[in-house]
């Protein structure tokens, strides 16, 4: 391997090498332009959030505002209540992710490593409902929540989202736990560890890659959730998440482009920042979904 690499390095300094790499640099240049266009909507949005309303209309393509209008953010944060919506979204997302990870890990563990009566039934029901998108069950979900007194409440929204189809997550855990050798738990059992100890001390820490995948995918789907928060907050505007708040905002202020852009920036910035900091985990987590 090393002689080959050294070979290539000397090769690179010659003209032939440069010529050989030229297609790659051309591809990179094309991709760079493509990527700039790709993220242009975000750049436009951030620029618009700092412009006056008049500037958004007259200088739509200029990315630099004349004089940054920070009061757009004040308007979106306080008047349009996006500060509150953001907090709501964080509460709902974090709670849902925690519940989903814990319940899917527990169910996956039991289904993977224990024989019990009813196991096949549980697995059968899970697989049968693998392909049920959320939108098609929304009517009974709303009806049931109403009868349980959970409609129009944050708890109801969290419970309904945690109960939505997460079959894939359970199956990922099942697959992973199945692959863990028996000896690992047997020695712990001989040492007198109980059922719960084995799970929380040994199995769950071992399943970190799956937990990363489930966390990232649940985080994305909950942060993105729209249908459920929409119908759960029809009569409780104070419980809106950012997605629902956004629709309400443009419904009420059709001409306030800069306010809209500021509200959108407020809603998106935390996740984008989180993504850039934790990029490796995002990528590995999503990759885990197809690898196993």
């Amino acid at each position: 391997m090393s002689p080959a690499r050294r070979n290539r390095r000397t090769y690179r300094r010659t003209w032939g090498g440069t010529l050989r790499r030229l297609p790659w640099w051309l591809a990179a240049a094309a991709l760079a332009i493509g990527c700039l266009l790709w993220i242009y909507p975000f750049l436009w949005m951030i620029a618009a959030s700092l412009k006056t309303s008049a500037e958004v209309f007259t200088k739509g393509l200029d990315l630099l505002p004349g004089n940054p209008q920070w009061e757009n953010y004040e308007r979106a944060w306080a008047d349009a209540q996006f500060g509150k919506y953001l907090l709501n979204t964080v509460i709902v997302t974090v709670s849902t992710v925690v519940i989903v990870v814990v319940r899917c890990a527990m169910a996956g563990y039991v289904l993977a490593r224990h024989e019990f009566r009813g196991r096949r039934v549980v697995m059968g029901v899970l697989v049968a409902t693998l392909f049920v998108p959320a939108g098609y069950t929304i009517i009974p979900v709303v009806d049931l929540s109403q009868r349980l007194g959970l409609l129009n409440s944050q708890t109801g929204m969290i419970l309904a989202m945690s109960g939505a189809a997460n079959v894939a997550a359970i199956l990922l855990y099942v697959g992973y736990f199945r692959g863990i050798p028996k000896e690992l738990t047997e020695s712990a059992l001989i040492d007198g560890a109980g059922f719960a100890t084995v799970f929380f001390r040994i199995m769950l820490p071992l399943a970190k890659p799956v937990t990363a995948t489930v966390t990232v995918l649940t985080f994305l789907s909950t942060w993105n959730a729209f249908f459920l928060p929409l119908v759960f907050t029809f009569s409780r505007p104070d419980l809106r998440t950012v997605s629902v708040g956004m629709l309400a905002f443009v419904g009420e202020n059709t001409t306030d482009w800069s306010g809209m852009a500021a509200a959108a920036t407020i809603s998106m910035l935390p996740v984008v920042a989180l993504f850039i900091v934790l990029q490796r985990y995002f990528v590995e987590g999503i990759a885990g979904a197809v690898k196993s």
Binding site: C35, L36, W38, I39, P41, F42, W44, M45, A48, L220, W223, N224, F226, V242, S243, V244, M246, L247, F249, V250, W257, M260, A261, A264, S267, M268, V271, V272, L274, F275, I276, Q279, F282, V283
Partner: peptide, 21 residues
């Protein structure tokens, strides 16, 4: 990173922003 960026943004908000775009 650039190509992945839209994935982490909220769909409903993208929908609204695109109305303007």
């Amino acid at each position: 990173t650039a190509l992945f960026l839209p994935v982490v943004t909220t769909t409903a908000i993208i929908g609204v922003v695109m109305q303007f775009v």
